[in-house]
Design a protein around this nucleic acid. Structure first.
Lengths: 270, 270
DNA sequence: ATAATAGTGTCTATCAGACATTATCTG
DNA sequence: CAGATAATGTCTGATAGACACTATTAT
């Protein structure tokens, strides 16, 4: 017994004759905030791509690209990351979908933002003709976002202020960036960074997210520094170890930690 | 000094000649999980719409609709909600963007999911020709999702199980629904419900989200019940009051609480 | 040897969970 | 007046924050 709609069509018949029509449809891209660390774990780094065409010609932007017709946004983010940087098996998490109609001056483009966390500061595919990519030092505090690379002479600075917005009849605070440097990021990519960092700091409390910036086996001094970098403040060693104790497993082996000078017990995530 | 790209065009020239081309673009919709409460606060209710056409003809679905070319997803959700139910000033929060290529059999449709929380179980625009809407009793526990309305003889049940997935080299648990009733929800709307409820329960810890299901002024016994409904478990009165103490302000007036039989102090959210 | 740091012990303030008690209202 | 419930008091165990101390090792 097949269901028929008001035109007397079965589902198969309906789908065969279905015409998507020409409602205006948006383009959909994914953009990734890719975070790594400096080799000595003395700071965070963010991966940016220099734009080779209008709009925002010569500005730096988050890596990203169009979602293909046969893939999910997650798969698109994974593919783009592989194509642009060569990394696989990276931690990838959806953050938010940005949809202001004028966020891209060319045409309507929505962007699904992702966080990507990598254990290594991987070598960047430089010199690739259209595509110039580079890692930048990245500082995110309560007051500012600072993105800079002295080698290529780029310095991008935004101040952050907290404003209160209404949603229904409840109010909530939100971070608003204001450009303070000559150079700026392309599109609304600062906002993507703000949302992504907010999400990271919230999720650290109840997920294993910082482990994805450590190697598979790691020492506790190194892991602690990664936590501190993501959180933006120091932790007490003893407290930190109590906190992660039930999530880690000792390998029974020692290794050199990046951050210290002595050998230290190696662990893996349970 | 205007920047020119590799074709010698300025940004204005580039935009004037820009052709979005015919890359296949997805349709983008918003879908809302609209939650209210029963009049006596004895349970949660969810608003569903009966589908009048293929696919999923006669199935119940979350309310939603296409994002127009001149509006953000948030604005689309607000508009759809107003059009379909008449409510304004509702709490609306983006949850997740669902993008499986085959999630809609007609054509590629991505959906940006929203949570909508309302203080009232508003009267539903029934009888509107194509659109039949109704409130359903809604139970969401660790083991199951139960959506039912005895008046119209609909009973939808999913079991929930926890599975572990990998993201990069870290693992995380996730809830997976399995259909247990004859009737099912349209599209991937169960998954939208699962993600939305997960988000609500997480956000209760650090936001004022439950206040958006109370009237502007409310009694503490009522507010506590709303918290309990959203969390899915009971709270101790004294502890609850300590928890919300610094977020509320007494009106200096008493009112009848819905849930109790006595008068109780009225409060507003700070 | 010594400076640095890996690793552990422990004190304290705070907070969530759990009951208990008192005050007040409604039928 | 009696039963219900609004409102508050307080005990306990767990936990985060803070600091101190010991053990080990690279130079």
């Amino acid at each position: 017994m097949e269901l028929k709609d008001k035109n007397g069509l079965t589902e198969a018949e309906f789908l065969a004759q279905y015409d998507p029509g020409d409602y205006p449809r948006p383009s959909v891209t994914v953009d990734m905030m890719v975070l790594g660390t400096k080799k000595d774990l003395s700071g965070l780094r963010i991966l940016l791509i220099k734009r080779g065409g209008h709009p925002y010609l010569n500005s730096w932007a988050l890596p990203g690209g169009f979602v293909h017709p046969d893939e999910t946004c997650y798969e698109a983010a994974k593919r783009e990351l592989r194509e642009e940087t060569g990394i696989k098996d990276v931690f990838l998490e959806q953050v938010y979908t940005f949809s202001k109609p004028d966020r891209d001056p060319r045409t309507r483009v929505m962007s699904v933002a992702y966080i990507a966390l990598t254990p290594f500061t991987l070598p960047v595919k430089g010199g690739d003709d259209a595509l110039e990519a580079a890692w930048f030092d990245f500082e995110f505090t309560d007051n500012k976002i600072h993105i800079y690379n002295e080698d290529i002479g780029v310095d991008i600075l935004y101040y952050l202020s907290t404003k209160r917005f209404k949603n229904g009849h409840i109010k909530y605070p939100n971070l608003v960036p204001t450009l303070k440097s000559k150079t700026k990021l392309a599109f609304d990519h600062v906002e993507i960074i703000v949302e992504s960092m907010k999400k990271i700091r919230k999720e650290i409390e109840y997920t294993d997210l910082p482990f994805s910036m450590a190697e598979v086996s790691f020492t506790l001094p190194d892991l602690q520094v990664i936590y501190e970098l993501l959180l933006g403040h120091k932790l007490y060693k003893a407290n930190f170890r109590i906190m992660v104790a039930d999530r880690i497993e000792p390998l029974g082996e020692k290794g050199k930690s990046i951050v210290g000078r002595r050998m230290s017990e190696l662990y893996i995530l349970k």
